[in-house]
Design a protein around this nucleic acid. Structure first.
Lengths: 346, 346
DNA sequence: ATGAAAGCGCTAACAC
DNA sequence: GTGTTAGCGCTTTCAT
């Protein structure tokens, strides 16, 4: 229906100048007589003119757009990284496209392809990667394809694809955080720690678990395989997993939840079973999302610099020519002690 | 730098056909000989071709994009609406652009303008509106401007701009939810209810407060103005507000928090002051975000159909020609009783 | 079934 | 300073 936006030509006609002149005042980066500029501006206002971003993107080569590919906006973990991305993007004059993939590797690939069509300046993929050869190969392919058209693949919170692959990666010390937390638990006297939320094939999960294992080894201990439960990074897995653990009569004094959401579920199950936290069992999470503060008891967890991850992703990708040395960043993590942990038996 | 994506022309050359033929297999909506199509497809694969979305948008008129304008992705309230929007958009073959405004009315207007440049199929603005004449006028202007180019302004969770303004509005029964909740509190015996998080000039806040007032009036009561605190829809206001209330020695048995986040802050303040919830005071929130379940005690609150709001927004906007009668939707809300409320003095 | 040619709205040489 | 002329990559008549 209604389909008559005014164009440079309309504005030019009304102002009695040529299209290029209009374009010049639009760009602002070229001398135009003050009086002419005023007339053009006036015409634009009267015609309620706005540039067509597509025509502009077609002529020049950049779209002034950053794409953000995420598993699920709803998770606070992603939401905060999204905020960092959005803020930095907007600070750099870029628009932000949001795509969600709902844990489906196929959709990730499809979405990245779409972003390639959109000629986004950067394509930021957030969250653990699937440790699957075919998947990695496809991502590597995209990295090259994006690079070829002057765009950039950015991996946030997932490992690099390999040397020579043109991609920016912004990680955080996943393994180190889990190591620190496990060490804390172990040295406070917890010997039997259940691990909830091992997600097979997910890089993030693998790294956290390996920090968990390394801490045990360092103290000459071995985690009990029966206490490591497979599942997803979800509240419901935390709930189900904790119930299952309780029902099995397993012996444990602490629960290491794969994420804060998993911890939230576990806390609910524990509360329902009248198991007191932290008196009977300690619970720790991972991520330090705002929710951690509101859980009861307030959750001891590993802090991840969410917003900074997002911000850094955009910054590095957009300025990769100026800061070529820093295309692989690993941000630190640290544990935050709150009320959900205590020495066992005290 | 690298800036040589292959084009239809490249593909055409390699397949030994004309550009139009390539375009035809791209579109799929036109007869092409099977053998030719195969050759073209092969050439595309070999050249790793992807269409240029901008060139396409320039020729045709739609961008296949939906814009989503939100205050802050980080709030769970928005996050869940965002999910609904994203899901429906993707189901309708649209991409989703995300823009945040951080509570700044100026930025809302700027962002909507940008979306106009992008020729988005729909521009979805979420969250309470500022009850400010100039602001409303600008929005009305945008509604018309978008309409003129075949796009659509969608208002989610805010009142219509007025009759004759071409905009889709998807509301939820804000006033009704507050009314129901307040009535529940009042009829359970709470006579002095504090209201935390009145945000002057914000439509959402105004509606909630008027439901709060109507419930009082209906029972022949009048809310005590001293118990109504101005602030923002934030956790920190909930915290500060509750502390202030406590410090003032005010007399109240229940707290109606403007949102669940406000309630979370209030609960923390109450806990720190050793005021037991719900034994000493009852607390209720608004929104029913997932967090409500994880608060302690689990929060009694008003359920808002977040995802459906987002989904409906996209659906109505995109199919406005097929369902012209339903461009103003009001979804229902209902109260959810959990553990943060109780009759006073029991 | 396929090709040639025009044009979407804008920017960027290149003239004057 | 300003106008003219070409395209950017694709879709779409109009021919054939």
């Amino acid at each position: 229906m209604g389909n008559d936006a005014s164009t440079v030509r309309d504005v030019a006609a009304r102002a009695g100048v040529s299209a290029s002149t209009v374009s010049r005042v639009l760009g602002g980066t070229y001398p135009v007589a003050a009086s002419t500029r005023a007339r053009v501006l006036k015409a634009m206002r009267e015609l309620d003119y706005v540039v067509n971003a597509h025509a502009r993107a077609l002529g020049g080569s950049t779209n002034k757009t950053v794409a953000f590919v995420v598993d699920d906006v709803t998770g606070p973990f992603y939401a905060h990284i999204a905020r960092g991305v959005e803020e930095q993007a907007s600070a750099e004059g870029r628009l932000c496209m949001l795509c969600t993939t709902h844990g489906d590797p196929q959709r990730v690939l499809a979405v990245v392809e779409t972003m390639r069509e959109q000629r986004a300046d950067a394509v930021i993929v957030v969250g653990g990667a699937w440790e699957d050869k075919a998947y990695q190969d496809r991502m590597t392919h995209f990295a090259h394809a994006l690079d070829r058209v002057g765009s950039r693949l950015v991996l946030v919170g997932r490992p690099p694809l390999g040397p020579g692959v043109p991609a920016t990666v912004v990680e955080y010390d996943n393994e180190g955080g889990a190591f620190a937390m496990t060490t804390h638990l172990l040295t406070s006297g917890h010997q039997r720690i259940a691990y909830l939320g091992r997600v097979p094939g997910l890089s993030t999960s693998g790294q956290r678990l390996s920090g968990f294992r390394r801490a045990h080894e360092l103290l000459g201990l071995a985690p009990d395989p029966a206490l490591i439960l497979d599942g997803t990074f979800s509240r419901s897995h935390g709930y189900q997993g904790a119930r299952q653990l309780l029902a099995s009569g397993a012996d444990f004094t602490a629960v290491f939840a794969g994420t804060d959401m998993v911890a939230a579920g576990a806390l609910q199950a524990l509360r329902e079973a009248r198991v007191s936290v932290p008196d009977d069992v300690s619970v720790v999470g991972y991520d330090d999302v705002p929710l951690a503060l509101d859980l009861f008891p307030a959750l001891t967890t590993v802090n991840v610099p969410h917003e900074e991850l997002g911000r850094a992703a955009v910054r590095l990708a957009l300025h990769r020519d100026e800061l070529p040395g820093s295309q692989h960043l690993v941000l630190g993590t640290h544990i935050v002690l709150r009320d959900s942990t205590r020495r066992p038996g005290h």
